[in-house]
Design a binder for these strands. Structure first.
Lengths: 341, 341
DNA sequence: CCAATTTTGATGTACGTAAATCAAAAAAAT
DNA sequence: ATTTTTTTGATTTACGTACATCAAAATTGG
């Protein structure tokens, strides 16, 4: 049987109350006594029964998710997954709140973080805008003992406890290799459609993509990045223009959202051309395009996994428990038409 | 606040004891009373606090994993992941046992299942050998109320509650498309190295692979399957022979284990040839081969995820709870050298 | 209508921990 | 040595559920 507080009390030769004081870092325990108890804890391999503890404490984990108010499929999906987690709140002892802030606005994010922190939640998950002032306040929250995880987009060099998202540099590199290999040894131009170079994840994807392209596929030439602002209309125009003007384009990498516009442009302008296309994020549109051959591969991050992982990590950090690293790694999904879920 | 047994007792106008009788299907409750209580449960949206219930019951989940005694990296990894789960037993209230049975021996598996079932565990996870007698006993166990999940390899048409493994047909199809696309429009022969055609997952991978090859890449011709019995030595010999005799081989799909032998053969015989190689299972060997360019892509199933998923599902089934389907889907990982974990 | 039976209620204990109170003991300060 | 302060012990209640027991009420059978 696994040891209980009674067992450590007996082993350490102290009372239950003292064990409790040590376990819950209450004052009034002499140093030597505390050490006796801690030794007993280690010797017996005692681990607090979190379920029983939470029951006794009547504990719930108030968690706050801070998301950019972006109107694209991915953010909608992320929102839906958080709401699904809210529906499971009772069983998971969580009390999850979603807060939206203007996208790409560090100041707004900072203000919201301050507001949220004032409520002393058990944890905060945020889609980070990569700015120094955001890093500063995140570091302060961590310092104040509030668990913080970044979601989808990370925060360079910050003290956040965890990042629940994919490695975007690896994603870009993977896209490059897939595109390069799919194109065989062909020579030609590659168009890159991004949302905005102001967003860290897009920058990183491009960085990874460009680096593998340059190193390993010199026959392919990258055109200047098209910034579609994750907007289908803008994306449509940019891609249609590019395809119209440049007959040498043989591949496209769409590393952001707004793929609806991309797909439309492809169907209008490139039905006859043998284009190889790699896009990010599996949505109803990209899925259909993958199945009908308009897109050749989709790179995806599973929003559901990201949300569940963020919650698990925040709860674990709030309890000072370890996380299973391998379980919390968010993988880059590569979908061909054959392995769609 | 979420409702408790006290709340339903009050709402139904009965005593706590009666609510308890209904909840735990104890006898001595009139039909009408039972209905009153069940209505209250539904109206208030009561869900049993599993943590508190388990605490009260002093419940542990005795789970048994039945694995084939195969000496390959994947099974070793699977074993290690189960042992890691055993290390977490205390926190997860599980009591996990690993049982090994001779590989590919339905009778032995049936006997072991009978022995294990006699101990009435909370759940059984097994790497199924796909045989009618195995299906029969699994169906019987399910019928007797023992949760059963298949692991890695499924059992056709059985009543098992869940399958914790990848879709192997999709895996084969994906391999075919990757190989076909990587080879551009080239014409040539494709060698397929399997473990044994007696194993369901290998058969399915081949089936998916062959079907996409035939449909979409007619320029590529499949050679007869080489059965390497998941043994590095055998695999080495088979591949070395094939490469020696057949100069037309331009691609290899290794859908089983024993990749150590494959890799050695490739380095000896094909250092100069432009072979495209796709293999299954990420191990230290295949990882190194992917990085040095000997292998072009690795398809993988994450044994850790499979084990954790099997445990979650078994516990949930034992408690009659729902599972989050999306969370329990085991994904096919596609690794290029750029997105290795 | 009474007895036998079934159904229901009331109550207590337990699970492992948290948290509080008050008394007792030990240590430190005077 | 006495007082003050700190440390420790003993005990209780609570969390939400499970489970057991005994008494009381309701229902059924004769």
């Amino acid at each position: 049987m696994r040891p209980t507080v009674h067992d450590i009390a007996a082993a350490a030769g102290v009372s239950l109350a003292t064990v409790d004081r040590v376990l819950n870092q209450r004052p009034g325990v002499r140093h030597v006594t505390r050490e006796k108890v801690e030794t007993a804890i280690r010797d017996l391999g005692y681990v607090r029964d979190v379920a029983a503890a939470n029951l006794a404490k009547g504990r719930v984990y108030p968690l706050t998710f801070i998301l950019p108010a972006s109107d694209n499929s991915f953010m909608h999906g992320l929102n839906a997954e958080i709401r699904a987690a809210i529906a499971r709140s009772a069983a998971e002892r969580t009390d999850i709140r979603i807060v939206e802030v203007p996208a790409f606005d560090p100041q707004a994010l900072v203000r919201e973080l301050e507001t949220v922190a004032a409520e002393r939640p058990s944890g905060i998950a945020l889609v980070a805008t990569d700015a120094p002032e955001v890093k500063a306040i995140v570091d302060r929250l961590v310092h104040d003992g509030i668990p913080v995880v970044t979601l989808v987009s990370d925060l360079t060099g910050s003290l956040r406890h965890h990042y629940a998202g994919v490695d975007n540099i690896a994603a870009g590199r993977t896209a490059a290799r897939l595109l390069g290999r799919f194109l065989g040894g062909a020579k030609g131009e590659i168009a890159v459609l991004a949302g905005s170079m102001l967003v860290r994840d897009h920058r990183e994807r491009l960085e990874g993509f460009a680096s593998v392209m340059a190193q390993e596929f010199p026959a392919l030439h990258l055109l200047p990045v098209l910034e579609g602002r994750d907007d289908p209309e803008v994306a449509h125009k940019l891609i249609a223009d590019a395809l119209g003007k440049n007959g040498g384009i043989i591949g496209i990498y769409s590393l952001g959202a707004g793929n609806r516009g991309l797909i439309r442009a492809l169907k209008e302008k490139a039905a006859d051309r043998a284009l190889t296309v790699i896009a990010h994020e599996l949505t109803a549109h990209t899925r259909a395009a993958l199945l009908d051959g308009t897109i050749d591969a989709i790179l995806n991050q599973d929003a559901g996994h990201e949300v569940r992982s963020a919650i698990r990590v925040l709860k674990a950090k709030a309890d000072g428990l370890a996380v299973i690293d391998a379980q919390e790694r968010i993988r880059l999904d590569i979908f061909l038409k054959d392995n769609l879920p």
